[in-house]
Nucleic acid binder design. Structure first.
Length: 734
DNA sequence: CCAACACCTG
DNA sequence: CAGGTGTTGG
């Protein structure tokens, strides 16, 4: 419970906190403003909304427990689909996967008959599964394709296939190095009748572009088409590799289900016994039966990712499984005596899987990297977005068991593999757990201003704080987190004039700066290694990226008391630039009511005059305005949603309120160290509003005055680093 | 008077 | 986010 009664202690601050002035003019406009809001809330009231909107920290993540990397990879790849339209490799990946998942076997034959110059060796080295799949497309796609195949057969097949694959890949690589002169026309590459949803669009665009091209550009067009052929070459290679991977997956899947389903094969419908059906025709029946009879849910069992899920689950669950207890897919018929052998086999299977996935992924990634390295013109915007929702990290809880034993598949790391950046430089993305020293450049000094800063306030409810990240980081020094800021690698600094400095002036800041990726990555790496050495290291004023450098004091020109015309000089950098605004917003996480003296301290690179000062003050006033509006809005929502007491109101990093605030003050999410204290203050504010409204104080025109008085005392000390004119670089690139 | 504030408006 | 305005404490 915040100190309601302390309103007389305002004098503790040296700075003037006249939060009580200027509030008289309110004549119920706020209530009017929220009338529609109220109405909408009433219309859409249901308990779930209550939980999500109000009880901010309640999160359900049942899915994440089941998830595994490949599954995510597949899903994410599919989800990237829309953004990948112009990125051939990834498009292929998603298409391939999608085709496979929708058991459309035609893709393989499509690839071979599309007129592309596929080297003969590749075709002839198709493995059994692939060639047979040409005859009956479905045959290879089911895990039950060959349940009768002997174990060693599969092993042998796998080995052979591995060798074949390696030879093929080498062949491919060799071919890639000296065969960019293959001539094939774009339109024929992806037949219009192809079932892939993307292909028509793609070819349509290509055709359209072709039609529009004037004759003068023919040579350029030739160049383009040559490049495209190159790309198509690589695309095909990627396809092939993916096919290989999928085949291997299928085989492993079969193997897995053999091990796994042999115990309950009698369970299978139609009395088909897997052990008995040695003949492929019987198998086909079996497949079609199971395929057609399976519900949508069960169809996901054919998903390789799901298969991996189960493999992983098998490995992890076996040791702690009681006798007779079996994974869900086994149904109720437990057979404990199989469990030991199953465990061993599952482990072996997992090992094989790991190796295979590692090598295959490495190859694919390498190829992709090559494609990128060779691409001479800017990459399409379809490159997978780098923005990573923070809750994806905070939320992603795996099964606890996965953490307690080291059987957690190491190659799977911590998810997010599909992000090309991760594999781009083979750099291991540092997770928050990896950082062991010198975490924040920003060190908050103990301030007398923050009564409950270090220990989390008493009002937290353990059950209501599900964010594992924040709880895990609760022990890190002064409530700073250090999640890895992936996005900053793709988000160069805003230019002083407010336009993004990247080559892509897209409206979306998540639009990638692919060409800068490697540079940014290395820069990040050096930042990582140099760590705290960069603390307070002033970046050279002639630094090309100096954001303040080019700022033109447009604002100043409006000021009557402009003293020196030299202030307008572009390089004097004395005005308030967009980066100053950004900095001010970040500072708001610490202080809601900065004194003008404080502002002068922290914006030392700005030549202060009355105008600048009031502009800065105005900024913070605007920040507060937004802040309080949000607070009131969410408080009223909570009331409308039937929240009984303030105890149910918490502000955590994954709640909507925080997101709204963070969106406002930390839009690009480039500042990943939003102090815990800010959450506390926000929660207190929210509860203040809640209490006041519940008590009906909002009838008083100046009812917020009391709240302001409370909140203005909760300011934290702004970290020293904010005093640096270049703090943005240091903060964001840290 | 003036700085600082909240509120309103564009 | 900036401009304008009314309010208030010093």
């Amino acid at each position: 419970m915040p100190d309601h009664d302390n309103t007389s202690l305002l004098s503790r601050q040296t700075k003037k906190r006249r939060v009580d002035i200027g509030v008289k003019r309110t004549v119920g406009t706020v209530s009017l403003a929220f009338a529609h809001l109220k109405a909408s809330n009433f219309s859409a009231m249901n308990p779930h909304v209550v939980e999500q909107d109000v009880n901010c920290s309640v999160v359900q993540h049942t899915d994440s427990e089941k998830s595994n990397v490949l599954h995510k990879l597949l899903k994410r790849t599919n989800s990237y689909e829309d953004t990948l339209v112009t990125f051939p490799g990834a498009t292929i990946i998603s298409q391939l996967l999608k085709n496979n998942l929708t058991k459309n076997g035609a893709n393989e034959s499509d690839f071979q008959s599309n007129g592309l110059s596929r080297t003969g060796s590749e075709i002839h080295q198709e493995d059994v599964c692939s060639s047979s799949s040409r005859g009956s497309p479905q045959e290879c796609l089911s895990p039950f394709s060959r349940p009768s195949m002997a174990q060693f057969d599969i092993d042998r097949l796998t080995d052979e296939h591995l060798r074949a694959k390696r030879a093929r890949v080498e062949n491919i690589i060799r071919g890639m190095s000296h065969s960019p002169n293959v001539t094939n026309r774009i339109g024929e590459t992806e037949p219009d009748g192809a079932p892939q949803p993307l292909s028509p669009r793609e070819s349509y665009r290509e055709n359209k572009r072709k039609q529009k091209l004037p004759q003068q550009q023919q040579s350029f067009q030739q160049l383009i088409s040559a490049r495209k052929e190159q790309k198509h070459e690589e695309r095909r290679h990627l396809k092939l590799q993916l096919e290989d991977m999928q085949k291997q997956l299928r085989q492993l899947q079969e193997k897995f289900y053999q091990i796994y389903d042999s115990t309950d094969s009698e369970n299978d419908e139609d009395g088909h016994s897997s052990e008995d059906s040695l003949h492929s025709d019987g198998m086909d029946n079996h497949i079609s039966d199971s395929v057609t009879n399976r519900s949508e849910n069960e169809m996901s069992d054919l998903d390789p990712g799901h298969f991996l899920d189960q493999a992983q689950a098998l490995i992890c669950e076996q040791p702690m499984m009681t006798e007779g207890e079996k994974p869900k897919r086994d149904g109720s018929r437990g057979k404990g005596h199989r469990s030991t052998s199953m465990y061993a086999e599952g482990k072996q299977l997992a090992e094989t899987l790991k190796q295979e996935l590692n090598t295959a992924m490495t190859q694919v990634v390498d190829t992709v990297v090559k494609v990128f390295a060779k691409t001479p013109y800017p990459l399409p915007q379809g490159f997978p977005t780098l923005q990573t929702p923070s809750d994806r990290f905070a939320v992603n809880r795996e099964h606890p068991n996965f953490h307690t034993n080291n059987q957690r598949l190491p190659c799977f790391g911590d998810v997010i593999i599909p992000n090309p950046l991760n594999s781009f430089s083979n750099m291991r993305v540092p997770s928050s757990n990896d950082q062991t020293e010198a975490l924040p450049l920003v060190v908050r000094k103990n301030s007398t201003d923050q009564p409950g800063s270090l220990p989390t306030p008493a009002n937290h409810h353990p059950g209501l704080h599900p964010s594992p990240l924040s709880s895990a980081m609760a022990f890190s020094p002064p409530s700073f987190r250090h999640p890895f800021p992936l996005h900053i690698m793709g988000y160069p600094f805003q230019s002083p004039l407010g336009a993004p400095s990247g080559p892509y002036p897209g409206k979306d800041r998540s639009s990638p700066e692919s060409m800068d990726l490697s540079r940014e990555t290395t820069s990040l790496r050096t930042k990582m290694s140099s760590n705290h050495l960069s603390l307070h290291r002033p970046i050279s004023p002639t630094h090309p990226g100096n954001p303040e450098g080019l700022s033109i004091s447009l604002i100043k020109s409006e000021c009557g008391d402009l003293q020196d015309m030299s202030d307008i000089s572009p390089y004097s950098g004395k005005g308030l630039s967009p980066n100053h605004l950004k900095k001010a917003k970040l500072m708001f996480f610490y202080t809601r009511y900065p004194s003008s003296n404080m502002l002068k301290m922290f914006f030392s690179d700005v030549k202060f005059n009355r105008c600048i000062t009031s502009q800065l003050i105005k900024w913070f006033s605007n920040f507060r305005e937004f802040y309080y509006i949000q607070m009131e809005k969410f408080a009223r929502q909570a009331i409308n949603d039937g929240v009984a007491g303030v105890e149910e109101l918490t502000v955590s990093r994954d709640c909507e309120l925080y997101r709204a605030l963070n969106m406002h003050y930390n839009k690009a999410n480039d500042f990943e160290q939003v102090p815990e204290r800010f959450l506390e203050v926000a929660q207190i504010t929210l509860r203040e509003f809640f209490n006041a409204i519940v008590a009906g104080k909002d009838v008083d025109p100046s009812w917020k005055k009391a709240i302001y008085k409370v909140i203005c005392k909760l300011d934290s000390e702004v970290p020293e680093i904010f005093k640096s004119p270049n703090c943005l670089q240091e903060l964001l690139h840290e």
